[in-house]
Amino acid sequence: MDELEFRRRVYANPDTTDRDVVEAAKSDPAKQAFWQELKAQDSALLDVMRVPVPEDMAHKLIWQQSANEFVRHRKRSRWYIAMAASVAFAVGISFTLFNRAEVSLGNEALVHMQYASAEQSHSGLPVDLTQVNAKLAGFGASLTDMLGNVKVANYCHLSNVRSLHLIIETDQGLMSVFVVPQRDDVLLPEAFSNDTYHGEAVKMQRANILVVGDKDADLHPVMQEVKRKIQFSA
């Protein structure tokens, strides 16, 4: 297995157990080291994105179990049953709204931008079209041509979804392009911003595309270029 095919396979799935990939790594120490580094980076990103369990979660679970038991046996008055239902409804609405806010891709991308300036290419080599397409292959996508001067092409996690982060050098400074697999449980706002950055998002055939830049940057040309050059497999 040549170097490009090996990298494409492990980029697409660092935890692959395919025999030909394993054999290629065993026969080439450089491939083995690269694979181990990629798996370590993937594991580290997952650790960072893990959300700790709220301290009061045990109390909520105990409360829910008691409420269910209470309803089943109907040992108390209908007033208490109505009160329990009202509380459960209020808690359910609050929990749902909290979760939906947490998984907004726009918010996740803005938070990620705080660390974008420190990112460097993991390969240590200039980023070219072949390297970008090797990583896009895991998303069923490829570029027909390079997106300007791509400085960094790394995997990241947005809303616990493994995504691709491209950092592009433009006339307006560095901009980020995120390629995120589509999921039904995340929000995709058309536009989002904070005090430092703003972004735009579009839903494409098999992935969501987010472009983020400085507060006053014009994102439209980069977004149009991405939409024109990216293509998805059937």
Rank of each mutant, 00 (worst) to 15 (best):
L46T: 07
N68P: 03
S142Y: 10
D216N: 15
N13L: 06
C156W: 00
K215N: 14
S163E: 00
S86A: 15
D218F: 12
V150L: 09
I81N: 08
E23N: 14
S142C: 07
D216L: 15
Q41Y: 13
A85F: 08
H165P: 03
W63I: 07
W79V: 05
R206V: 03
R76E: 15
S66G: 09
Q65H: 12
D195E: 15
H59N: 13
P126K: 12
P126Y: 10
V186R: 00
D15H: 06
S43L: 12
L125P: 01
V71L: 14
A153C: 13
M175Y: 05
P181K: 04
D185M: 08
N133H: 09
E102Q: 05
E200W: 08
S77N: 15
E5G: 08
D214A: 15
I93M: 07
D56W: 04
S176N: 12
H220G: 08
L46H: 07
M146P: 02
F6D: 00
T17C: 05
D216K: 14
V152E: 06
Q182G: 04
T16G: 01
K135W: 06
T196L: 14
E169Y: 11
R9Y: 01
K26C: 10
R76N: 14
G148Q: 08
K227E: 13
Q131Y: 13
S77A: 15
S104C: 05
W35K: 04
P29W: 13
S193Y: 07
R183W: 02
N99Y: 06
A137Q: 11
A24C: 05
R183V: 11
T144I: 14
V51H: 03
L129N: 01
R9N: 04
G106P: 00
L166I: 02
L38V: 03
N160V: 04
E190V: 10
L45K: 00
R228G: 06
A101Y: 02
A82K: 09
N208P: 01
F98P: 03
I167D: 00
T17M: 06
H165N: 12
D216F: 14
T170W: 07
H73N: 13
V222F: 07
V127R: 00
N154G: 10
Q64I: 14
Y11M: 05
N133W: 10
S159L: 01
I167F: 05
E200I: 15
V211S: 06
H122N: 13
V161D: 00
F232E: 04
V103R: 03
A24N: 02
D185R: 05
L187N: 01
R78L: 12
D28Y: 04
I93P: 01
L105F: 01
V111D: 09
Y11Q: 02
K60H: 14
A25E: 05
M49H: 03
K215R: 15
R8D: 05
N194E: 11
K39G: 02
S176C: 10
A44F: 05
Q131T: 10
F70Y: 12
P29Y: 14
G148E: 06
F98H: 10
E200D: 11
A85L: 12
A207C: 10
V132W: 03
E102W: 04
F70N: 03
V71G: 02
V222W: 06
D185L: 11
H157N: 07
T96D: 04
Q114N: 11
A25T: 13
A40S: 14
E190T: 12
S159K: 01
K39A: 05
Q36N: 15
S66Q: 12
R183F: 06
